[in-house]
Nucleic acid binder design. Structure first.
Length: 423
DNA sequence: TCTGGGGTCCTAGGACCC
DNA sequence: TCTGGGGTCCTAGGACCC
């Protein structure tokens, strides 16, 4: 049976999460900021309407914030992750054919509901999520993922749709493509959009009808697949289970620059800890670890970036072992005298932890480390991450490298002490 | 003064091999 | 003056996604 794709997309997800717990934010322009309250990463419709752009540094819009009384929130990833899980769980009750595509989006295969009115079904999904969780979503339905994305986009923007648009066997399909700017097609980014427009292809309809060889030559196989998807030929299927990760990266910018190796080592230890926990959750081990650091990339003079790659003798997910290697790498690239703005670690060459090739000269007690990590994860899982941590992370409470969230909402859903008080 | 973070896939070119 | 023809593997960089 040929699939029918639905994309369910949470509207302005981070802002909507904040609004669920803070009703004062309703109807007002709201933005959510990135780490260290740096850039705008989510905007309410009202914020979009006063042309606050995605990704803009918050200091550049301080006037706009003042004159329009924009509500500003730090990001609260624990909250968004938790809300996302609730949305996904609710969606799974509508169909088991679900692909969790990102924190705020899921594809569904609705082909088993063909006999029903899919628009009605979409509305049921939408109202259930609104009622149970409080998050508004849009639903786009079509024969391919790319077309579903287009449907979803129109559903979100057009009042008439009521948040749901079904483009399967629709007389409005061409119309929908014609009103979709080429840069809004899934898979067309800045560079392709410029190239396509230079060649007279300005909307999704024109892209659909472009010549195969032209597209293949200039945009490769990916571009060709995209055009085929616009024609209703499904090139991407529903990925029910997520494939194992190929790499894990943890890095942060610092609010203020850092000079000392001591502080850099603490930061690296902290990021390795986060990464190693993710690694174990994936049931993987890293064969290669990379450490990188850099000065402020927005300052031209005396910019420094360096990266060190370390091949591990045996793939591991042991936090303390990984910290050791990461520190060795850091020492090689750390140069005195620079003002560092960011450091990070990457785990690569991941292997499933059941298939680790051991070596003869292995002085480590791997069984013991495995047990230790199990206990560590269990405690941090139950009592909150950071309950148990390595001394290498440092003992201070407000280290200079730590990320700042000045306007963070409380952990309504994940911390008993911070439950919403009803008065 | 203040500028996020984490991914994937594809392609071209070099090294190397037969 | 002539100067093979494939393969494979790896890597860096580009493009995209959220």
């Amino acid at each position: 049976m040929s699939p029918i794709f639905a994309i369910v997309d949470c509207n302005n997800f981070y802002v909507s999460c904040e609004r669920v717990f803070n009703p004062k934010l309703a109807g007002k322009p709201v933005v959510v900021l990135s780490n260290n309250d740096g850039c705008v990463v989510a905007r309410s419709d009202e914020a979009k309407a006063i042309s606050i752009k995605m990704g803009v540094p918050v200091f550049k819009i301080s006037n706009l914030i003042k004159t329009h009384e924009v509500q500003v929130c730090s990001s609260n990833y624990a909250l968004y992750g938790d809300m996302s899980q609730r949305v996904m769980t609710t969606l799974s009750e509508f169909t088991p054919d679900i692909e969790i595509y990102s924190i705020d989006e899921a594809f569904l295969d609705l082909s088993r509901f063909k006999r029903y009115n899919l628009t009605d079904y979409g509305h049921r999904i939408r109202s259930t999520i609104k009622k149970w969780i409080g998050i508004p979503v849009s639903v786009g339905i079509a024969e391919t993922k790319t077309l579903a994305k287009i449907a979803g986009r129109i559903a979100k923007k057009s009042e008439k749709t009521g948040g749901v648009l079904d483009l399967t066997a629709s007389p409005y399909l061409d119309r929908a493509l014609a009103i979709t700017d080429v840069e809004d097609v899934w898979g067309v980014g800045r560079s392709y959009s410029r190239f396509l427009k230079e060649n007279g292809i300005k909307n999704a309809l024109q892209l659909r009808d472009a010549g195969d060889s032209f597209i293949k030559k200039r945009m490769g196989i990916v571009g060709l697949r995209m055009v085929r998807e616009l024609r209703g030929v499904a090139c991407y299927s529903l990925e029910r289970c997520l494939p194992p990760k190929k790499g894990i990266t943890v890095s942060r910018s610092f609010k203020d620059s850092i000079k000392t190796l001591t502080e850099m080592k603490e930061a690296v230890a902290a990021y390795v800890s986060i990464g190693a926990t993710k690694l174990r959750k994936e049931r993987s081990a890293a064969g290669v670890i990379m450490v990188f650091l850099m000065t402020n990339r927005f300052q031209q003079e005396r910019h420094y970036f360096n990266l060190e790659t370390i091949q591990l003798p045996v793939p591991t997910s042991d936090t303390s072992e990984l910290i050791q290697y990461a520190h060795e790498g850091l020492k090689k690239i750390y140069m005195k005298g620079y003002l560092y703005k960011r450091v990070g670690v990457m785990f690569k060459d991941l292997v499933p932890d059941g298939q680790i090739q051991s070596i003869f000269f292995d002085r480590r007690d791997r069984k013991r480390s495995e047990k230790l990590m199990l206990v560590l994860d269990r405690i941090n899982d139950r009592m909150g991450s950071g309950t148990l941590k390595y001394a290498a992370v440092g003992l201070g409470r407000n280290q200079r490298w730590q990320t700042v969230f000045e306007r963070r909402s409380p952990a309504y859903t994940t911390n008993w002490d911070q439950l919403l008080k009803v008065s």
